[in-house]
Amino acid sequence: MKTRDLAYVALFAAIVAVLGLLPPVPVPGIPVPITAQTLGVMLAGSVLGARRGALALLVFLAVVAVGAPVLSGGRGGLGVFVGPTAGFLYSWPVAAFVIGWLTQLSWRRFNLAWALVANLVGGVVVIYAIGIPFTSLYADVPLWTSFTGSLAFIPGDVVKAVAASVVAVAVHRAYPVIELPTRRATAG
């Protein structure tokens, strides 16, 4: 991995943190105010690609773990990794990877539709597919209860997927950093 990749990873981890510092936005018609943090997950995947995007989220989680209060609502420290909703945190690197992978697949013909597919599959489906069963197992509540409890957040996440897609397409046009083919064997 080149030093430039390390810098991308570090700075996107910082972007995810900064998005967590923004105050939550109430959206009309949606019961839960949306925070911008998973927007950072989607941006990391769709701007940096699978590997660097996933690494950025791993670094972000490391920064949370060492005690920076950068999760939305000023949370941080090790406590969030053992809380009932920790599965959603663990899902972020996977989500960024899936978004990045789908983005790379469609890179040559990347447009808003492809960006939406990548961000909805990786940024919504993957996150809930990991977070909901985790909460259910961890807190010993039925899967269905955990699922219905999370429903309120889905409209906000769809709004974020649309936002991330618009930004991803603009960045793809103005400053693309995903290089194809990305199958270099080096690791850093």
Binding site: K2, L11, L43, A163, V167, V171, Y175
Partner: peptide
């Protein structure tokens, strides 16, 4: 909200570029 993100992301990508050159100049190469 959206208008904030595009310039932020692009300025961060440019910053990463500058930063990596500075790091390489100080011996953090591959």
């Amino acid at each position: 909200r959206l208008g904030l993100l595009v310039p932020l992301v692009i300025s961060v990508l440019q910053l990463a570029h500058t930063l990596s050159e500075a790091l390489d100049a100080r011996g953090a190469d591959d």
